[in-house]
Design a binder for these strands. Structure first.
Lengths: 199, 199
DNA sequence: ATGTTTCCACCTAGGTGAAAACTT
DNA sequence: AAGTTTTCACCTAGGTGGAAACAT
């Protein structure tokens, strides 16, 4: 395949912090969306190997609806239930990685992080933001497209990691999710984990 | 010239905040260099027009010695005096703009800022840093090179703004410079300008 | 003496969840 | 009742000059 550095090579795309993602996914990941836009935590980070060193690739991300449902969280049973039929997401929204296009050499030499993307419920998302719908389930999707090559279908690769799917919310529903966010996100420290005394 | 969008166009490169630069230049600009690297203030920021929209340009900056002198600041006369012959700067140091290469369209649509560059006196500058020599005078130089074009000499343009020259120091010498840095750099506020009371 | 290094208080900039206020 | 918006205290991250310690 022309995507690869040489015949016989294997294109490998790996999700970073997969234990962290797994911990959230087990509880049912929620991502806050706000009018001004909110980062994802965890952020989608990937490692790639097997690209052509000198080729240039466009790297982008979008979000596909996992199903047509709208959900609500039932507190007493601590479960998400289907509450109706969801709305349609605003189409053709793509977040291009700030450093895109990148050379294959650069891309394979370091982690590619989508930490700067912001999720919003604003109808008109500004640059760097993606508009989603509250109480619906989404799956991040990463696209890697070789630039300057002929527009054949094999010059683009699309990857999804199922454990990165989440329900968009305007406020956290599951308190376990809140706890995990506070425990793992350095920016979220409303309460200090133990004693703030001494020292 | 192939550098331009179309025959008859004028390539225009303008220094931003030229009043600010002028204020510093009048006093004799000093830039701190440290082992860990220090940003420039003011930062070099430019506006460009007249580039080919779809062409891609490599944008970089380096520093050329203004003269062969080493200077010292004489406090009682508030003047810089030549104190001897300077050393030779480490050669072939170039800072490539983080967003380089950029398309002509992108470059002409916004200010191109070199605010993230760091100046150091470390012998082995790390990425994003430029190693300079204390008590010597330097002139920032900007290079814009069209990529993918034939390697003819007219595909590169080099610009210098004389008012951006400075003396590299490990500590400020002229107190007027210190005062101006504090007054204009939002990060430098050792003392509040007026009353910190009320409210 | 003169120049350099280290450490630090003080700032900007901006990412968090909590809680209250608001909407429907 | 259920979901959204606003505001805010608290945090990370990192850019400043000052002052003291250090080097030569």
């Amino acid at each position: 395949v022309e995507f690869l550095e040489k015949q016989g090579d294997v294109l490998k795309i790996e999700l970073c912090q997969s234990e962290l993602w797994h911990a959230f996914h087990t509880l049912g990941t929620e991502m806050i969306i706000t009018k001004t836009g909110r980062r994802m935590f965890p952020a989608v980070r990937i490692r790639i190997s097997g690209l052509k060193k000198t080729a240039r690739y466009k790297v982008s991300m979008d979000f596909i609806p996992v199903d047509k449902n709208k959900y609500r969280y039932v507190y007493h049973s601590s479960r998400w239930m289907v509450s109706g039929v969801g709305d349609s997401i605003k189409q053709n929204q793509t977040y291009e990685h700030p450093e895109s296009p990148m050379t294959g050499e650069y891309m394979t030499s370091q982690v590619i992080s989508f930490e700067k993307i912001k999720l919003t419920n604003h109808e008109k998302p500004s640059t760097g933001q993606i508009s989603l719908l509250s109480m619906q389930k989404f799956q991040p999707r990463i696209m890697i497209q070789e630039k300057g090559s002929s527009c054949t279908s094999d010059s683009q690769i699309t990857v999804t990691f199922p454990q990165t799917s989440f329900i968009a919310v305007t406020a956290y529903q599951n308190q376990e999710i809140t706890r995990l966010k506070i425990a793992r996100n350095p920016f979220a420290k409303g309460f200090r984990e133990a004693g703030k005394c001494s020292s």
